[in-house]
């Protein structure tokens, strides 16, 4: 049988192949790997990466990058514990408020990139520092409070055999995939990422599209922060730190070009799960956490190098 994967989806198929290989390796070398409890954990951690990578994926697709994600995650996590505490009924108001605040951060990122012409790396890095400072002022340097029940429910409970967070992720996967492949916004986003000038010439509102990806990214990061607070049962400064690299790595492993214009969320899902499996597998093999960082770094570099080599082969 001939393998019928369209050219543009080949790198995504590759991401799933990588995931499969890791799972098989894990089953062979580590006993208890992928047991029933373990699978839930892999899905939950994959989902957290998947939430941040969702937003990062939109930004990268448009040809930018969002470095403000970690502190938006942290802020959302801390705000949800300090504002809301254990009083669940407040959450009805607080969650939209937190996500709204994040949207403002994203909007400022977008405005800076689009209207002030600041490069995305500098703009989002600057914003990240601003958010960090504001949060330190607000918390006086120490986070506290309790995680509200709905966040805990989202992050740790199950409906039947299925983790709630996994279900939430599934819903997001469907919505995002549909948005990217079947809506005018998705199509315009690809056009902007591939070539802004062509998009502009074709009547696409490039500024609006670019702005909106940063808003989406911050909102997704805030959602991830709330879920993360529920997952770890507390909030602390720096809780979002690991999610900068993982968000970019998940998108890169998922077959998207780091330069924008290609890839989709289905690939990013494979990237997020791959990272979550790596996360679980490396310690069981006796590697220290530091090794994990080395592996992450290598993975990103290899993915980016592969993407640029692939790009060169295409233009030759």
């Amino acid at each position: 049988m001939k393998l019928a994967v369209p050219r543009r989806h080949r790198s995504i198929a590759l991401a799933y192949l990588l995931l499969l290989v890791l799972v098989v390796v894990g089953r062979i070398v580590a006993s208890g790997f992928l047991g029933v409890d373990h699978i839930d954990e892999l899905i939950d951690e994959g989902a957290l990466i998947g939430f941040v990578a969702l937003g990062q994926g939109f930004v990268i697709l448009a040809g930018g990058v969002d470095l403000s994600i970690p502190w938006v995650v942290t802020s959302a996590g801390i705000l949800v514990t300090t504002f809301t505490g254990t009083n669940s009924s407040n959450m009805l108001w607080d969650v939209p408020l937190i996500i709204g605040l994040a949207a403002v951060v994203g909007l400022i990122n977008g405005i800076g990139v689009v209207f002030l012409g600041v490069t995305p790396i500098i703009m989002t890095l600057g914003m990240s520092t601003v958010v960090e400072g504001a949060l330190l002022l607000y918390t006086n340097g120490s986070a506290g409070g309790n995680v509200p029940h709905p966040a805990v429910f989202l992050a740790t409970h199950k409906i039947g055999q299925v983790p709630v967070m996994g279900l939430a992720w599934l819903v997001l996967i469907v919505v995002v995939t549909f948005t990217l492949s079947c809506t005018p916004f998705g199509r315009r986003l690809y056009a902007v990422g591939l070539n802004r000038r062509v998009a502009l010439f074709s009547g696409v509102d490039v500024k609006l599209v670019t702005c909106s990806v940063y808003v989406i990214s911050s909102c997704a990061a805030a959602f991830a922060g709330i879920a993360l607070a529920g997952y770890v049962g507390q909030s602390y400064l720096g809780m979002g730190d690991p999610y900068l690299f993982t968000s970019i790595a998940a998108v890169a492993i998922g077959g998207a070009s780091i330069l924008g214009g290609t890839g989709n969320y289905i690939g990013t899902v494979a990237g997020a799960l791959t990272l979550s499996v790596l996360n679980a597998l490396l310690p069981t093999l006796g590697f220290q956490p530091a090794v994990l960082d080395i592996v992450y770094g290598m993975v990103i570099l290899v993915a980016v190098a592969a993407a640029s080599l692939g790009g060169r082969a295409r233009t030759d």
Binding site: Y190, A191, S202
Partner: peptide
Amino acid sequence: GLLPTLTIRENLAL
């Protein structure tokens, strides 16, 4: 005027 990695249809409909 063209996005070479998209299909003819996607280009025309943009």
